[in-house]
Write a protein that binds this DNA or RNA. Structure first.
Lengths: 340, 340
DNA sequence: ATGAAAGCGCTAACAA
DNA sequence: TTGTTAGCGCTTTCAT
């Protein structure tokens, strides 16, 4: 009977018709997909593991772009896309074990995420997007170091030497406030770590003492976080001329805070972001654009293409510095270095 | 051994430890989720069927809000959310048959969608969101008739009697252009049909001959579609004083077209939308706000709560007319009805 | 061209 | 408390 459904060419059309008709009459709902999956060893779906609550993915414009690309790749391959219900709060790893999928895309999680550990125990292929960087796994992401260095170069070229930094969470535990150099070095979120490290390198080279640079961390990735972090950075060092943010959301929040304080951007304060989300472009933010859709698609393709597990593949995506309207030379008072 | 993984309390900790350790040493990756699903008759995931290409869902702000709500409900229940790769172009229904899920949420599809038919053959619960309205299935959605009637009342109250309408696709086949009354009546997308019918009723009651009202249909749901449809409506009847759009996207496109033509809104032309997406609020569009997130959550909850299949449940969501800055009284030349 | 049967890996019920 | 076994529904191989 299986043939009647799956191999129409293996039997006479007449018999096939008769079989199908009888099946319908008996109330047979068609082959059970789970039983089929067990037999064929193919679930027909890709699992997606996210850092955040599932629903957060739909609130973050970058993540939405990534999802669109991933969905595109799955659709092309006729594969389903299963969102794994794994919130960071409940350490309930069972959802990962329970998921009937042929592989996992892991999107931007910390290196010590228990869900990631659970994923790696499953005997299916895994592709990591953004973080963590693990040499034995396929990986897709931008060159964060180089991308943020372009921002640093841009600011240094403009003359900024006294800066503040706003960054996203550095580790699984909540820490809303300044991040010590120690904490920066121990960050379990590789992306943030790479960006901070590269910033430190560039600004150190330009003569800035990194230990004096306020680096303000926020756990939640929201406009409010950006605003309050900006306030905190300005409180720690009111003399800063530029605020470097490791995401557009934080930068847009900082922009709001600057406006509230009556600071002109970029005359009184330069603000830069990272990501290139639509809202950032609309606001004219100086930022780094990364190809979100392409990132998702690349991750999906990598997972769905068969590969030799022996040699992990790494795909590095191009980024682009967008010099917007929120960056300019520092306040004139700070320009004495350039005096005649 | 199953007990070691699933029923830690049913055996001595010592034995459990020994079993697990041996399993690991033998390279056992843990229970196979598919086999477990076959045995327990639970896939642990909800399937989502969409009208459009999977990736479209992430480009439509309303759909994103809906997805967020649905994801929220799934997460609360510890269930996965599987996006079914069912594009409207390829009539490939196999993806529906292949999906290992415990139920389906069907989001806004036409009544004659073959994927919907395939879903209904599966012996699992189904919840429909928005459309089609089938009395034997659970349903979640707004009261489209009442909502659009609020818009109609608003416009009639302002004095508009000569209007044009921009609507989304009415059937599965592409038709970019005017929709005859016949086509309106035969629409297989219930939402559009309900909105058009209710508009016709209200404006007829106000003395408007509906057969003279240009109703312009667009297959794609984009700003460009809205703009070109607006142009077409104005070409058919340059005397219209208001453009009623059945979605915000179309309305925002119409707004763009009006600007391009040098028409002042609302002085020269009133434009209204439907949906209440963020961009619409930003633009000050007169529109109907519907609770997207709540809609998704309600759909998820309905599916995950056990129910008696005998009596289908219907959840009708509240909508709210937002009188924005894009609607006003008609051009003075049209106001002779109100003369002193 | 058609029918019969083994077995995918698990869980749950039962036996010891 | 521990071990054994039937069978979930399918696909695939093999026998007719």
């Amino acid at each position: 009977m299986s043939n009647a459904y799956n191999r129409p060419d293996q039997l006479s059309p007449e018999l096939r018709k008769r079989v199908l008709e009888t099946a319908r009459r008996l109330g047979y709902p068609g082959p059970d997909p789970v039983a089929r999956s067990l037999r064929t060893r193919k679930a027909g779906a890709v699992g997606l593991l996210l850092t955040e609550n599932l629903s957060y993915a739909f609130r973050d414009p970058g993540a939405v772009g990534f999802l669109e690309g991933l969905a595109l790749a799955c659709e092309d391959a006729g594969q389903g896309l299963t969102l794994i219900p794994a919130s960071p709060e409940r350490e309930d790893v069972a959802a990962v074990h329970r998921a009937g999928v042929d592989g996992f895309v892991v999107y931007s999680v910390p290196e010590d995420d228990p869900h990631l550990a659970a994923v790696m125990e499953r005997p299916v292929p895994v592709v990591v997007c953004d973080q963590p960087r693990l040499d034995n796994l396929d990986w897709v992401g931008p060159d964060d170091r180089q991308a943020i260095k372009a921002v640093a170069g841009h600011l240094i070229g403009l003359g900024h030497r006294r800066i503040g930094v706003l960054c996203m969470r550095l580790a699984r535990g909540r820490n809303d406030g300044p991040a010590t150099v120690q904490r920066q070095a121990n960050a379990s979120f590789h992306v943030q770590k790479a960006r901070l490290t590269a910033l430190a390198e560039e600004f150190s080279e330009a003569g800035v003492d990194w230990t004096t640079v306020p680096v303000v961390e926020r756990f939640d990735h929201t406009l409010d976080s950006g605003a309050s972090a900006a306030a905190q950075a300005l409180e720690i060092d009111p003399e800063i001329t530029a605020l470097v943010c490791t995401s557009d959301i934080l930068a847009l929040g900082a922009l709001r805070e600057a406006q509230n304080r009556g600071l002109r951007v970029p005359e009184d304060l330069t603000i830069t972001g990272f990501d290139g989300i639509p809202d950032a472009e609309r606001a004219g933010l100086t930022t780094v654009r990364q190809p979100w859709l392409e990132k998702g698609r690349a991750a999906g393709r990598l997972l769905l293409e068969t590969s030799e597990p022996s040699r992990p593949r790494h795909i590095q995506l191009e980024t682009q510095l967008i010099a917007g309207a929120t960056s300019g030379p520092p306040r004139s008072g700070e320009e004495f270095w350039f005096g005649p």
